[in-house]
């Protein structure tokens, strides 16, 4: 390989990499069918500037219902209930409130390690292409990461340092 090719390869890597934004707290599955039951896997890849993660909180967006978090060994699981802006029908019953926040706390996830936090929920029946934001607050022994940035009109998640993970709805199968 010539020097130019090496440089070009390096350039290609550099150009390709940022789009993946691996350093963020993310959801494993970024797309799911409208109205489906969705297994949300929150991936925590690092702590806060080297400090270990002790709490992970996720805010469930409006329209996402029937939230069932998965307990996690070494962590205390709790949920926050709230009233839905629009009630939904489930097996002929009107449900007006439910889980709006899931909290895993009391654990210790060192900066160098990786872990996943899971819950299951029913996604709303909305048009394909609808983007749902799941803001996450990652609290560490020292410091906090708030993955809560929702892009302003005309901007994308790439424009932000701490974007909220998203799920884009696809058409009902």
């Amino acid at each position: 390989m010539t020097g130019t090719t090496r440089a070009a390869l390096a350039a290609a890597l550099l150009l390709a990499l940022p789009a993946t934004a691996l350093a963020h707290a993310t959801l494993e599955t970024a797309q799911a069918p409208s109205g489906s039951y969705y297994k949300a896997v929150i991936r925590i890849g690092h702590g806060c500037d080297g400090s270990p993660t002790t709490t992970v909180r996720v805010r469930v967006p409006e329209g996402v219902v029937a939230v069932k978090p998965m307990p996690k060994s070494g962590w205390t699981l709790s949920t926050v209930e709230g009233t839905y802006a629009t009630p939904y029908e489930n097996h002929g019953q009107t449900i007006t409130k439910g889980v709006t926040e899931v909290v895993w706390t009391g654990g210790t996830l060192p900066d160098a390690w990786y872990d996943e936090f899971v819950f299951r929920a029913k996604l709303p029946e909305k048009a394909a292409g609808t983007v749902l934001h799941f803001p996450i607050v990652q609290e560490c022994e020292k410091g906090v990461h708030r993955w809560i940035e929702i892009p302003e009109p005309g901007r994308s998640t790439d424009d932000y340092k701490e974007p909220a993970p998203t799920v884009t709805l696809t058409a009902k199968p």
């Binding site: 290609a12 150009l15 390709a16 990499l17 993946t20 691996l22 350093a23 890849g45 900066d111 990786y114």
Partner: peptide
């Protein structure tokens, strides 16, 4: 190369 990198990279995790 860019395409390959894109395909390969999501499996690695860095801070």
């Amino acid at each position: 190369v860019a395409l390959l990198a894109l395909l390969l990279l999501p499996h690695t995790l860095h801070a």
